[in-house]
Amino acid sequence: MDLAKHWRLRHARYRLEGQRNRFTGEVRFPPAPPLPGEREDIWEPYILKGRGRVYSFSVVRQPPEGFEDQPPYLVALVRLDEGPMVTAQLTDCDLDQVAIDMPVEMVTRRLRDLGPTGLIVYGYKFRPIVS
């Protein structure tokens, strides 16, 4: 069931928590451990604001295992305002509504349901901005 994997990823998935360089201010996502020889305290946890724009997108009609009940659905590359690019599903967005450069915001939704004896996996998706 990959319980440990889902648990380990919870901060990044639930609240888009990446890292910020204490010295340069650079923001990165997803978070990563320090490189060999790199000081441990260079990167601090940083919750991204969750705003960005669609860099590119695709409609998934032939889903991978575990997503059989979802197609057609949108997957996008989203360029976040702080700089990082993330891959995520778009939600609350019609197939003919999406466009490159469309402003989007992060929401926390159900990513997968691992069945009646399994976990419900939650994480970030993006949607057109509600103002």
Binding site: D69, Q70, T91, V107, T108, R110, L111, Y122, K125
Partner: peptide, 12 residues
């Protein structure tokens, strides 16, 4: 929606 429940709505 199919990816929404009490937890996701509470978060927003």
């Amino acid at each position: 929606g199919p990816d929404e429940d009490t937890i996701t709505m509470s978060i927003e």
